[in-house]
Computed example of a mutant assay.
Amino acid sequence: MKNSIVRTKTGVSYLYPFIVITSLFFLWGFAHSILDVLNKHFQEVLVISKARSALVQAVVYGGYFLMALPAGIFMKRFGYRWGVILGLVLYGIGALMFYPGSFLMSFNFFLFSLFIIGCGLTCLETAANPYVTILGEPETSASRLNLSQSFNGLGWIVGPFVGGLVIFPEDGSAGDIALPYLVIGVVVLVLAILFMKLPLPVISTSVTSSKDNEGKASLWHYPHFVWGVVALFFYVAAQTGINSFFINYVTEEVPDITNRDAALLLSLGGMGLFMTGRIVGSWLMRRMQAAKLLASCALGAIITMVLVMMQLQWISVG
């Protein structure tokens, strides 16, 4: 275990907290991917347009936009542990609100519930990502983060799989939208209680100045950071847009495919490839320059999106 990615040079092991924190990556992957099933469900059950159903993603990512800085300030004041607890509590409350929502059947109420979940996910991501990187030696931080994020990919697979089975029953009736959220709400609230009780390490970080940082007042002075933000903006927009309307696209391009089948295709096919891509990407990053790998992926994405726009049925779906 001397070379373990969760053990320090002094012999301190952070394996247990690493496992607990990694479970959070799965939870927010699940929360994001099940949204893609909700889009189609709300369109049919609440009789709303595709444009209106897109508010599902808009309010969740709106929660990210509005909560990101406050979450960082909160964690700077109270630490990572309480940042995780706050995120889990908000996530749990938002999820449990789907139960009364299933009786009200108000789209606006569902949107408010999802906004609360989005705020909770913001706290979780703001806390968990840096927490994982410091559960061991600095030189193995990237390996720890990649390993944790692979479970995030697993959550992306499970979300539409569970959503497809529960929300789109085989008989074609309207499924129980509250059930998956009730289960996940209870799970995350139990995790919040565990985080209050578990003897997790209290780890603080300090920012020290270096010669490389002298004379530069903010991150915006670094071109790689600026263009990285631009790249991330388009990446998230593309990922969200594609996933959100995947079920719509498949059922319209291949009429024999049901909503349930399309959701399972999104889970095992789309999200399965998404997780595989992360694993392969991590492997390639050790052998290629990051800029070249990013450019190659961007070019591949452009080519495949052109094929999608050509509406070649199964070829475009693939």
Results as ranks from 00 to 15, higher is better:
1 M>D: 14
4 S>F: 09
307 L>C: 13
189 L>Y: 01
201 P>Y: 12
141 S>L: 04
194 L>T: 07
63 G>H: 04
197 K>L: 15
262 A>K: 02
189 L>T: 10
193 I>Y: 11
312 L>C: 09
44 E>T: 11
296 S>M: 15
138 P>K: 05
300 G>D: 10
197 K>M: 15
129 N>E: 08
143 S>I: 03
150 S>W: 04
238 A>E: 04
294 L>G: 07
166 V>Y: 06
187 V>K: 05
202 V>N: 15
161 F>V: 05
17 P>C: 08
69 L>R: 07
190 V>R: 01
60 V>A: 07
79 G>S: 10
170 E>Q: 14
75 M>W: 10
209 S>H: 12
202 V>I: 10
1 M>G: 15
109 F>D: 05
57 Q>R: 05
235 Y>H: 09
58 A>E: 09
207 V>C: 05
274 F>L: 11
134 I>H: 13
115 F>E: 07
181 Y>A: 01
245 F>M: 14
206 S>A: 15
42 F>K: 00
203 I>N: 10
219 L>C: 03
164 G>A: 06
217 A>Y: 06
292 K>A: 15
127 A>V: 11
26 F>P: 00
64 Y>V: 07
60 V>Y: 10
252 E>I: 12
75 M>D: 09
252 E>V: 09
35 L>C: 15
308 V>H: 11
12 V>I: 14
229 V>M: 15
83 G>W: 04
125 E>C: 13
226 V>L: 09
155 G>T: 00
315 I>V: 15
227 W>H: 07
122 T>Y: 02
306 V>C: 11
7 R>E: 12
200 L>C: 06
102 S>H: 09
110 F>L: 04
205 T>Y: 11
308 V>Y: 10
51 A>R: 08
208 T>H: 14
98 F>Y: 01
208 T>M: 13
213 N>F: 08
123 C>R: 04
79 G>C: 13
278 R>D: 08
190 V>F: 12
115 F>Q: 01
172 G>T: 06
218 S>Q: 01
178 A>F: 08
308 V>T: 12
29 G>K: 04
21 I>F: 13
124 L>S: 06
298 A>T: 15
206 S>M: 14
124 L>M: 14
172 G>L: 02
174 A>P: 03
259 N>W: 08
163 G>D: 10
16 Y>W: 14
292 K>M: 09
210 S>I: 11
225 F>G: 02
220 W>C: 04
182 L>S: 04
240 T>S: 13
220 W>T: 00
85 I>F: 01
37 V>Y: 09
1 M>V: 11
313 Q>P: 02
307 L>E: 00
297 C>N: 10
313 Q>Y: 13
197 K>Y: 09
2 K>F: 10
40 K>E: 11
146 N>V: 07
238 A>K: 05
233 F>M: 14
180 P>H: 06
74 F>L: 05
176 D>G: 04
144 R>I: 14
26 F>W: 08
116 I>P: 01
91 Y>K: 01
246 F>E: 06
191 L>E: 04
256 D>W: 08
283 W>M: 15
154 L>R: 04
94 G>I: 00
130 P>D: 08
272 G>F: 02
32 H>E: 14
113 S>V: 01
180 P>Q: 00
93 I>L: 03
253 E>T: 14
29 G>N: 02
174 A>L: 06
300 G>Q: 07
262 A>H: 08
251 T>S: 12
207 V>I: 15
198 L>Q: 00
166 V>I: 14
238 A>R: 02
296 S>D: 02
